[in-house]
Write a protein that binds this DNA or RNA. Structure first.
Lengths: 253, 253
DNA sequence: TGGTTCTGTCCATAATATGGACAAGAACGC
DNA sequence: GCGTTCTTGTCCATATTATGGACAGAACCA
């Protein structure tokens, strides 16, 4: 499907950039980039340093870790329109946040990653704030990722999960576990994780599909586990499912 | 100064991306990318299409023009902190905008381009709004660019102007004209263009330097020409110069 | 001290990106 | 209609370019 050739170096540079983006502000050590991309160290080293010269990547003084540079937001300014989805989802996030009281996330798929694009903090005094806007994770490790995978054709989902295999280790999961969760999510109608990425938290995610049936995003509630018992899980899931359908209407029109 | 080799393709891809960023949402035709980068058409074609497959570039349905894709803002989310400069400049822009009443721009240098990063609209009923946040131009074609060039060592400025030679044509200027304006700006203490990029407008720009003497940005006022006669030009320049020094203090601390 | 991480560099080699040449479509003039 | 000039897209032999194995230094720990 993507047989265009003659640009190995560019593709590799982008793969490196995506890993660095997943590391956010803290940056990523070279060795980790080498491990997760599967490229050789001289190659990664060369790519990263060319990107530094070009201002696309920065190196943190103290740690020596590599991170996304300031020229990337500058390039991004050339594309200012906020996405349709963000506008369409806004009222639903507002309503659901008020009704539920716990933290809400809106997450999209980008390549083999999930990317948090919006967050609403609820009124309940204990909030799960571990995930920030811009947070990027391999598809499959969060309940949002599981929901998005559950919403796509099984074969495509398997392909993505396989591609992320190496990266799962860092999140203490593996291909079989993720595929199991995806299957469970399909049965339930929503994604769920009893053990959230942070100890003692629980997450519930619904998927949002585009008119052509592709998953566009996931809407997630994260809370301390004790606040999401079986009964309330049911309630929260119903709210999320209802709002997800409303967002689908909005992006469909 | 930048002798690292082994990544021609990556550098070329970035050069293409920067041209596309300058085109903003409208996009840029392939032929123009070829002309301004000086690369051959097969090469640009290959690069652009690989970037499309990777989601970094998009092609507009109707026009066939190429533009920055949605994955670029997604990568940029990994770097959320707004720049020090933007924070430091905020009160000055506020004050100057109130005092002057015409549109104010804050512009930074990025590579061989100027990039508008902030804009304040004044109270006067006729405002020059042609430049938007995200607008990118070759250094030298706007008064902000002239100011930034005037604030750097003459040799470096000449080098940048020479590098932009090909791109000047599209703005109906040339190396000699730009260098003349830069010299004039050094004498005056601020950048000025009697004929703005839009017919009948006039612009005045002051430069803002970092503690180490490098130009960090330019602050610009644009107005219809009749509103910036010699007397008012003097007044406006004084306000801009004063605020520029205040911003320099703020980023210096 | 030796062992284990990490990062950085060299350079012969193979694989890769290159660009001249060709092709075809679109817009314009007449 | 037909030529002219613009555009974008593709092929493929070639040589330029990116590659990665091997080596080395630095930092940390026992």
């Amino acid at each position: 499907m993507e047989p265009r050739q003659g640009a190995q170096a560019i593709r590799r540079a982008l793969a490196v950039l995506r890993i660095l983006a997943a590391g956010r502000e803290d940056g990523v050590p070279l060795a980790e980039v080498v491990r997760t991309t599967g490229l050789t160290r001289p190659t990664v080293h060369r790519i990263v340093h060319v990107l530094i010269e070009e201002g696309i990547v920065e190196r943190h003084e103290r740690t020596g870790r590599y991170a996304i540079g300031n020229q990337v937001p500058e390039l991004a300014l050339a594309r200012p329109r906020p996405s349709r989805l963000l506008i369409a989802a806004n009222p639903s996030l507002q309503r659901a946040s008020a009704a539920i009281g716990d933290t809400l996330f809106l997450t999209v798929r980008t390549g083999n990653d999930t990317l948090c694009v919006d967050r609403r903090i609820g009124v309940y005094p204990i909030q799960v704030l571990s995930i920030e806007v811009g947070a990027r994770r391999p598809l499959g490790v969060s309940s949002a990722g599981v929901a998005i995978l559950a919403a796509m054709p099984a074969q495509e989902a398997r392909k993505i999960v396989a591609a992320n295999e190496k990266r799962f280790e860092a999140y203490r999961t593996d291909v079989a576990t993720v595929l199991g969760e995806v299957t469970a999510a399909r049965r339930l109608g929503y994604g769920m994780r009893e053990i959230g990425l942070v100890q003692g938290t629980k997450s519930i995610s619904t998927w949002i599909k585009t008119p052509d049936g592709q998953p566009a995003a996931a809407m997630t509630v994260s809370a301390v586990r004790t606040r999401l018992g079986p009964r309330r899980e049911q309630e929260v899931a119903e709210i999320l499912l209802r709002e997800a359908r409303i967002i689908e209407q909005a992006i469909g029109g």
